[in-house]
Amino acid sequence: MSSELRNISRITGIILIMAALVSLVAGCSGTTGASPLAPQARLRVATTTSLYDTGLWGYLEPRFEEEYGVELDVMYAGTGKALELGRRGDVDVIAVHSRAQELQFVADGYGVERVPFAYNYFLVVGPASDPAGIKGMTPEDAFRKLMAAGGGTFVSRGDDSGTHVKEKAIWKNAGFEYGGVQKAGDWYIEAGSGMGPTLNIASEKQAYTLSDMGTYLAYKGKLGLVPIVDKGAILLNVYSAIAVNPEKVPVKNLDTASNLIDFLTSPEIQKLIGDYGVGEYGLQLFTPCAGNEPTD
């Protein structure tokens, strides 16, 4: 037998034996397949972390699933990432809070329509001792003083989320280029995390941070942070839902996506959103606004 032939027969033998071994192992271990449902039976929504961290989606999800018989996959991502997932067609609906970016998203044809469904306010929270002495100021003045006086640490979301975009808008209104703020010093920390984790970091470091009201109230019990700045027109925080447009992006679930948006703006669910967390936190986390743009 030539060496080449011998090699080939060897290999064939080995493969057969290995295959037998593997099928034996596979057979013993029983059913191991993870059979996902067909994608048609699922609706995927990317939601801003502030809505996720308050537990609102966990509360609404089973209601929607029961009413429409659809598996709702809720993914949490900052507004920037949620919009990107929408543009890529990896989600069917986005629930976000950054008006200018949302309008752009719809104008570019990626979104069908921007439907506001709830709002609350942002606030700057920080340690009760208020080391920078900014309590009660307007957001813009507070940021100016943080920059000028030092003495206070500020934790930024740093993740291109709606809250982060709002923070950048406040810096801009206060007269600072954001690039300069990022390099302003050790007192400015970029967390690169969701709202809940960022609040935890601020609490650990006894620092200030910008938060939405809902997540702050939901986390308040675990934090050593108090409201510092909570008045100013710029602090309005509107949550909208947008169905991804199948004419621009290859998504297939527009009907179900529209159902989700109708669901969110239905009187019954609007009432649930308005009541959500009131019993637990003593304050309203979200004010429902069924499809209308709230004005301050």
Partner: peptide, 28 residues
């Protein structure tokens, strides 16, 4: 359970590829 199921499946499928392929590389 989900973690276990996914990792077992991955390991088995990887075995199906790697054991024959590894043999081919070794014996040639």
């Amino acid at each position: 359970g989900r973690s276990l199921r996914l990792a077992v499946t991955s390991a088995l499928l990887a075995s199906v590829i790697c054991l024959p392929l590894g043999s081919i590389i070794h014996f040639n």
